[in-house]
């Protein structure tokens, strides 16, 4: 050990002592993990295709459900003799879902639903349907959103 000039006695005494440790076999394991990450990086298409397909199935399911909800909603309004007004079209809702498909948690989706769209134009049921379909159908959303 090289002697470092002009350091105090406490510092001199502690020099070379290692206060940190690592888990057993850490360096072997981290080497494998890094090499594995590199393999994943090198094969993006193979690892992204399936989640994307799964995700799109949920988009289609969401579209169908929203369609049903909107038709029911309009039916109720017509039944009670109300005008449809300027509510969001299904296409707008779909565009919205696709735009925010990168959001990874429910609160972010809720927050954006409230701030970036005229919130009155989309019903609570529609919001919940979107969120539930995108996030709570047993889909591993973190993996899917990260890899999209």
């Amino acid at each position: 050990m090289k002697k470092t000039p002009d350091i105090g006695s406490d510092l001199e005494k502690m020099k070379g002592q290692r206060a940190f440790s690592v888990p057993d076999h850490y360096f072997e394991r981290v080497t494998d993990e890094i090499l594995h990450s590199i393999e994943l990086e090198e094969q993006p298409s193979r690892f992204m295709e399936r989640p994307k397909r799964v995700f799109m199935r949920y988009i289609y399911a969401a579209a169908a459900l929203i369609g049903i909800l909107m038709v029911s909603y309009l039916g109720i309004r017509i039944f009670f003799n109300e005008q449809p007004g300027d509510h969001m079209s299904q296409v707008e809702v779909m565009e919205y879902i696709e735009f925010y498909s990168g959001d990874v948690n429910e609160s972010v989706v809720h927050e954006n639903l409230g701030t970036t769209l005229p919130v009155d134009d989309i019903s609570d049921e529609q919001k919940d349907a979107i969120i539930i379909l995108l996030l709570n159908e047993g889909i591993d959303e973190l993996t899917i959103f990260e890899e999209l």
Binding site: D10, M14, Q17, A19, F20
Partner: peptide, 12 residues
């Protein structure tokens, strides 16, 4: 995974 004593803590 920190095994330091008080002196090492103080140093950090």
């Amino acid at each position: 995974y920190f095994d330091g004593d008080d002196l090492q803590q103080k140093l950090q």
